[in-house]
Amino acid sequence: MEVLRLQNLQKSFGSVRALKSASFTLNEGEVVALLGDNGAGKSTLIKAISGVFPVDRGDIYVRGQKVSIRSTRDAMDLGIETIHQDTSLAPDLSIARNLFLGREPVNLKWLGVFAPLDLAKLRDAASALLKRVGISKKLDADALVSTLSGGERQSIAISRAMQFAAKVIILDEPTNNLGVEETHGVLRFVKEVRAAGHSVLLITHNIHHVFQVADRIIVMRRGEIVAEQTVADTDLLTVESIITGADMSALLKETRAK
């Protein structure tokens, strides 16, 4: 079942056409990898979906409904959660407080921003969540995020997205700066996320990771989607050549024929 559909998204910054035209569909319980060199338009596309800025043209559909995403809040309310490498967590806050940042459980709701946090609920929900995602053995909900490793931080950020029942989880370079073991931990986690029924859009430079977890691959170049293939139907070298643009014509023909 289709969860997210983009139709002909376009975005320019001044005279630079960062996104010439992008259309693709993301299905339920699917991990789609978005590949491309630097400047291919990946992050522009991601920012448009996650509400950082509006697109110039084109439509976004969530579960078949046409939507307009004007802010990160809009995207979150539609069930689209984006996790960036460095910008997802506040290191000086506890895990529990990070998990609920911006959606804090409170008592006396009428007090608005002055409402007291429901600390018991905050801690319980955080512990339950950590247990569910299988990292409760090591992590305490009250521990500061600054004491965690990079891989643990990614896991926390991904858990947070799962917790709010996100339909679409966008992972922006989740394995950057991670050690080998931690990278495997995060990739394993991505599979669990898929098993739980969420859809994942994975942006990465590392093609090896893509072949480990993704179902489909979308390649962007110069603001356009130049190829879309299922992982089963392709191999590492082919994808690599599409990204760099070597021997494009034959491959494009093959893609279009499908």
Binding site: M76, H84, S88, A90, N98, G102, R103
Partner: peptide
């Protein structure tokens, strides 16, 4: 602590 993280959560 991390302004971008807070903004990304709608703060």
């Amino acid at each position: 602590s991390n302004r971008n993280a807070a903004v990304a959560r709608g703060v």
